[in-house]
Simulated assay, not measured.
Amino acid sequence: MSIKPIVLLTGGRGMVGRNILEHAMAPQFSFLAPTSKELDLRDFAKVQEYINTYSPELVIHAAGLVGGIQANMASPVDYLVENIDLGRNVILASRNAGIKKLLNLSSSCMYPRNASNPLTEDLILRGELEPTNEGYALAKIFATRLCEYIHKENIAFQYKTFIPCNLYGRFDKFDPKHSHLIPAIIHKVHLAKLNQQKTVEIWGDGGARREFMYAGDLADAVLKAINDFDRVPSLMNVGLGHDHSINEYYEVVSRIIGWNGEFTHDLSRPVGMKQKLVSIERQKIWGWQATTSLADGISKSYNFYLKSIQ
């Protein structure tokens, strides 16, 4: 009987982590996915002790403090400091323990706000960041560069980074104070239908464009990477290669939920970057693509939302 490879997954209770653990390929591995109570990633000594004790063959760093525009603007210190601490502790403890393979999950938020789309991996630190989530972006840049520096000092350490586009899906956060765009839209439109509202407000003119990938597809890319780690680029976007306007996301969600009202626009509200579409050229060469359509992904997310509020 073969022994399953041990994989440490941080953030195993978050949206990305739970999608990884429920993936059909997950049983091929022995996943360690400690909760925050079982392992406080903000405590370097405890992280080091945990990794030394279990000696995983590979570490996937998916933990992080995440949230939408409102949360990032309200708590920039937390989004900067906590995410830096998490990345530093997991990555350095892994190096100190001699773990040779680590996959760091970053964010397309770390691209410059005015960069030309599609966003290529070489654009990082080539311009001003989006102010509404700058702290979070800086923390993600820190972790990405740390992985690169460790590999530069010793090429035996394959510390690589995925840069996913915006994500949504099962196990998402639907509380408006913490949610990203699609779960926020699902919550708003569901309440509009429930309360028989005739209008739903959209921040800005709705023309800003975003690329949202179903979290289950990112999980699929991560599981493929575990089995094909040597061929994974050291830095790679993971996305769809196409995007939609904010208005279009509202329209698709409304159609799936069955709400037939009208949209209004509050032009005084912040909307973030005008477009954030990642280049998937490296991803194509690696040989992977997302398969979940927007309608299917939103349907699955809405079904999860309905169960979560029961």
Rank of each mutant, 00 (worst) to 15 (best):
K4D: 10
P5G: 13
G12M: 07
M15Y: 04
V16T: 13
M25G: 04
M25I: 09
Q28Y: 14
S30N: 08
L32N: 12
P34F: 09
P34T: 05
E38G: 13
L39M: 09
D40P: 06
R42S: 15
A45Y: 14
Y50M: 10
I60G: 03
A62G: 06
G64Q: 02
V66A: 11
V66D: 05
G67E: 04
A71L: 06
A74N: 14
S75M: 13
E82P: 03
L86D: 00
G87W: 00
N89S: 10
I99F: 13
K101V: 07
K101H: 13
K101Y: 14
L103C: 06
S107R: 04
M110E: 03
M110G: 01
T120D: 08
E121R: 06
E121S: 14
I124Q: 06
R126W: 09
L129N: 09
L129Y: 11
L129P: 03
E130I: 03
F142H: 00
F142V: 00
E148G: 00
H151V: 06
F157C: 01
F157T: 00
Q158A: 15
Y159D: 11
Y159I: 06
P164S: 07
L167F: 07
G169K: 14
R170T: 10
K173G: 07
F174W: 01
H178P: 02
L181V: 06
P183V: 05
I186H: 04
L194R: 15
Q197A: 11
K198Q: 10
V200F: 02
E201S: 12
I202Y: 00
W203F: 15
G206E: 03
D217C: 02
D217N: 01
L218I: 05
A221I: 03
A221Y: 07
V222L: 12
K224I: 05
I226Q: 01
N227D: 10
G241Q: 04
H242S: 13
N260L: 09
F263D: 11
F263M: 08
H265W: 13
D266C: 11
D266F: 12
I280E: 01
E281H: 15
E281W: 07
A295Y: 06
G297H: 01
G297Q: 01
K300C: 00
Q310R: 09
